[in-house]
Design a protein around this nucleic acid. Structure first.
Lengths: 388, 388
DNA sequence: AACGTATTCGCAAACGTTCCCGATAGTTTT
DNA sequence: AAAACTATCGGGAACGTTTGCGAATACGTT
């Protein structure tokens, strides 16, 4: 490493011409020029010499053939005689050759990699989607690169840029709660890189989307409560800039209207449901003078939070309060009483999305931008069924 | 696309010399040669023309400077005047330039990517490790490529090959249950690519390892049972070729011995614990003439399976049977009674492993191959504490 | 006017593949 | 015996960057 003669730093030293056998350098931080003898330089720059990786050329040289031949032999091209192919394969094994995917990707302008951006990892939802997608992609010989936007619009943007820079062949993305602008996604269409939105989709841009039938699911859930004799059903919903939240709210309202229930403003709460928020909102709902006798929550974590709070307050479930969640997290089956909830086909969503993107990367035609809607299932457990 | 004149296929057509303005082709499948007029060929090969991505050269041309200047300007090199830098930045934005990471990686021989191979995704354990690792890597400007070996040794091998081909800067790996040979890992040392084993480690190779104190944890768990008055503690363990299973077994035995309990062979079961297997083994244990009054299971899923079976058989928990699990899955807190278990610092494990690999990629010295041991915690719930 | 120093840029060689042209020699066919 | 065909191989450009080396000005200073 070259050190600045004045300040002794190592960072920010750069070449700046030379004079008669002397290298000149500029220390950017302290803006000081200095010269070093050529040979001293080469000694100082002893740095990490990359150890040589054996390449196709090495094989070609030891065998006395051209590298085109080696390349073809390694790929089983028809033009290569069995003997040379075998010879190439043997020396490749001998020299411990590992193909350089980077070079391959560069010349082919494709990476056999699908990118996936998810907002978070904390619920089992996205990991499960990943399992499904991963399975399909691996089977098809693709890699999966996962990035996490952490519910931040800015991070999402930098994620998409990284995906572009890394030239993924396709992108699967589930949007952030904050995302209201979609310019960073339209770049993909311009570049001809297929893009699929899943779960957290939006309506402003025209790309393929994979979702569950949130509206009907919410409708089912609320209808189930109403049919079980609950009268005043409240809704603890997610942030309204998410389409899923809006759809579930719509389902809630539709069900209420169908059964002639009035929708009271104070019985509907929308917001970003962290655990504390869920507690606060739950507190509010359970402390209402005219307390709801059932709650439909937008996810299981919030529903379970409600159940725990009710238990603390001595409110009996399901007798005094019916609860329905959304997602069917593993813990929902084991809590007592079991939480009635909507099971989402998470792995199937991953599979469907992955299969779709594989179709898209191979087709040249502008695809029809449909929307794939997966079916959910109402799982009835103890939290919403009163004994007759 | 070129079609075979004989069989009409499109796959497997390859060039085979030419004759006077005619291209010759070979249909590999049906081994048939045929010729096509030059111009017809170029018409047929109209295929997907890659749309042009704007490169550094485009910027250079429109600005009338060299591409070295553009490259340097984009990287904020000191040699470039502020004016040209600004000009470059402007036209880059104008032309919608996106840097090509592939080319960068190729010339730099580094990818800023860390690879991670995990055996499975179904327990929340590995997703949580991923969360932790992902966080620190992203913060350090690295990407994370995840592959899943699916508990298969063969898949693990092909995964490592893919990691090598993609030239990851470092690899984090948790081994398969089947893995008994480690040649595929030694390649990394030869190549100078840092490698860290975590959780599912082995002792046959000398690389950095991150684990939890399985021995002590198991000891704690069993001691806890014994101190709570349980006498005949059985152990439902994992497959013995996993070090973690062996360590936990060792902990079980040590605790039993410390308290003067004899270790009966039929009270110790080792095996790969799928859900059915867990049921079968649990059935066996619970139907023993001399039924154990407590069970220490190697993971929570198995423990919960035991609890459910006990409930079916009318065996009361914790009165007739104490149960302790391992991992602290989310559902363990909610089942009734709550499952006593060992909480593993999963996210911390991801973080620690990631931080370590980041150190290793930057250092040239041969690192000391230590072993990092993370602390677990005994979470006492209802399943193991009898009322006095 | 001559020289030393600063500043800014360009040339061209890598990085490791793939694949388009085509060459060459041997083998059939006409 | 010429022509056509088969079977195998090589040369070298291209993919899009980075960067070592050094040229070319411009700006002082004696």
């Amino acid at each position: 490493m070259i050190k600045c003669v004045k300040c002794g730093q190592v960072e920010g030293i750069m070449k700046a011409g030379y004079v008669r056998g002397k290298q000149r350098f500029l220390c950017k931080p302290c803006n000081y020029y200095f010269t070093i003898q050529e040979k001293d330089v080469s000694a100082a720059v002893q740095q990490k010499r990359r150890r040589h990786q054996t390449t196709i050329i090495d094989i070609a040289k030891t065998l006395g053939v051209s590298n085109s031949t080696v390349s073809r032999a390694l790929h089983g091209h028809a033009d290569i005689s069995p003997e040379t192919r075998q010879a190439v394969l043997d020396t490749a094994a001998l020299l411990d050759y590992q193909p350089n995917q980077l070079a391959y990707n560069l010349v082919k302008s494709r990476t056999n990699t699908i990118g996936m951006i998810v907002p978070e990892f904390h619920n089992p939802f996205f990991p499960n989607v990943i399992i499904g997608a991963h399975e399909v992609l691996t089977k098809a010989g693709y890699n999966l690169t996962i990035m996490q936007s952490n519910e931040s619009y800015q991070v999402e943007i930098s994620n998409t840029k990284a995906m572009l820079a890394n030239r993924v062949d396709g992108l699967l993305i589930s949007l952030t709660q904050e995302t209201n602008n979609f310019d960073h996604l339209e770049v993909f269409e311009k570049r001809g890189i297929p893009l699929i939105l899943f779960n957290r989709v939006c309506e402003q841009i025209d790309v393929p989307k994979v979702v569950v039938n949130d509206f009907e699911s919410a409708f089912m859930a609320v209808e189930h409560l109403l049919l079980n004799g609950y009268e005043k059903v409240a809704h603890l919903g997610g942030p309204l800039n998410l389409l899923v939240s809006r759809e579930r709210l719509r389902g809630y309202k539709a069900a209420m209207e169908k059964y002639g229930k009035s929708i009271e403003d104070h019985m509907v709460i929308q917001g970003m449901l962290t655990q504390q928020k869920a507690r606060i909102y739950g507190q509010y709902l359970l402390d209402l003078a005219e307390r709801p006798d059932a709650i439909f929550a937008v996810n299981d974590s919030a529903a379970i939070e409600i159940m725990l709070m009710a238990r603390e307050k001595g409110i009996r479930i399901p007798e005094d309060l019916g609860v329905v969640g959304f997602s069917d997290n593993p813990e929902s089956a084991y809590i007592g009483p079991g939480l009635t909830t909507i099971r989402q086909p998470t792995m199937e969503m991953g599979q469907a999305t992955a299969e779709w993107i594989l179709e898209l990367v191979d087709t040249e035609e502008i695809p029809v931008h449909e929307r794939k809607i997966l079916k959910t299932e109402l799982i009835v457990r103890g939290s919403s069924v009163r004994e007759r």
